[in-house]
Computed example of a mutant assay.
Amino acid sequence: MRRLLRNIFLGLFIVLVAGPILAVLVFRFVPPPVTPLMVIRAVEGKGLDHRWRSIDDVAPALPRALIAAEDARFCEHHGFDFGALQKAYANNEAGKKIRGGSTISQQTAKNVFLWPGRSYVRKGLEAWFTVLIEIGWGKKRIMEVYLNSIEFGPGIYGAETAAQRYFGVGADKLTQAQASRLAAILPSPLKWKVIKPGKYVAGRSKKIGRASGTVRREGMAGCVA
């Protein structure tokens, strides 16, 4: 019985502690080749086009747009924005449109290491990986991996792929308007369109463009510059 318990404890330690730490350390230096979501979408028949590009070769307009759209306090928090979580909870409890409170760090942890879903187990693992990447990667690397793992449409992953597929340019040539358009579809990249967007996405894109100006002027993206 003692041996069984010891083996169970050792297995849990490897799965929940040693394994995640090792994976985070490896991806600190090595680009993640694929993510669980990419594999799932490929099996669903949506294809897989993923091209890695260093954050230093991505137009600054895109990180600014993503911070404006997804996580205005990205450079300030340590992985979790509890104020945003409280607002999201209050919004959802009031019966308004469902709103998430996940930070870019949390989304990156989920995208790279975990499967889609809302179970408590997955959320717990997401929190653990978020802590690990905040400690082991730092903000610039988190943003770099995020830029390269985002789903921008069916089979379209990462800034470079999206820039080429939608605008015919490399990620280093994206304008602020194009970056805002990409950021605008992120809540529903399989539903909303970058090219010929509907009224809502077009309006959201303009709003993100204005907010991106604030991000630039106030240095809110300084941690990834």
Rank of each mutant, 00 (worst) to 15 (best):
T214D: 15
Y120I: 06
N111W: 07
L4H: 08
F13G: 07
R51Y: 09
G198I: 01
E70P: 03
W52L: 05
P197K: 04
K206T: 11
S149V: 14
V215P: 13
A202C: 01
L12H: 03
L174F: 05
P32I: 03
E126I: 03
F27P: 07
A88T: 07
G19C: 08
K207D: 00
P154Y: 09
S102C: 01
V201P: 01
K207R: 15
H78N: 12
K193W: 00
D81L: 04
K193F: 00
Q164D: 06
T130A: 09
L48S: 02
G170R: 10
D71V: 02
L4T: 08
A18F: 09
F29M: 11
G95Q: 08
V121M: 10
N92C: 05
W192M: 03
W137L: 12
I14Q: 04
T35I: 07
K196H: 09
K173R: 15
R122E: 13
F13S: 13
T175Y: 12
R210D: 07
E160F: 01
S102Q: 06
W192I: 00
A84K: 14
N7C: 06
P36C: 08
G203M: 05
F9E: 08
Q86Y: 13
T214R: 10
D172A: 15
P33E: 09
V224S: 09
V15L: 14
P20E: 05
G168A: 03
P116G: 04
N91C: 08
I133R: 01
L37Y: 14
T103E: 02
M220Y: 10
S105H: 06
M143I: 01
T108H: 09
A211L: 15
L48F: 04
N92Y: 13
F74K: 14
T161P: 03
K139N: 09
R181F: 02
L190C: 04
W137T: 11
P20N: 05
E134V: 00
A94L: 10
K139I: 02
S54F: 08
Q178S: 08
A72N: 10
A162R: 07
Y120P: 01
I135N: 05
L10C: 02
E70N: 06
G45D: 04
I98F: 13
P36L: 12
G213I: 01
V39S: 05
V201D: 00
D71P: 13
R51N: 11
D172M: 06
R64A: 13
N7H: 13
F29D: 04
H78A: 12
I67C: 08
V194L: 05
A59Y: 09
R216I: 07
I40W: 06
A159P: 02
P154Q: 07
K206C: 00
G213P: 02
G213H: 03
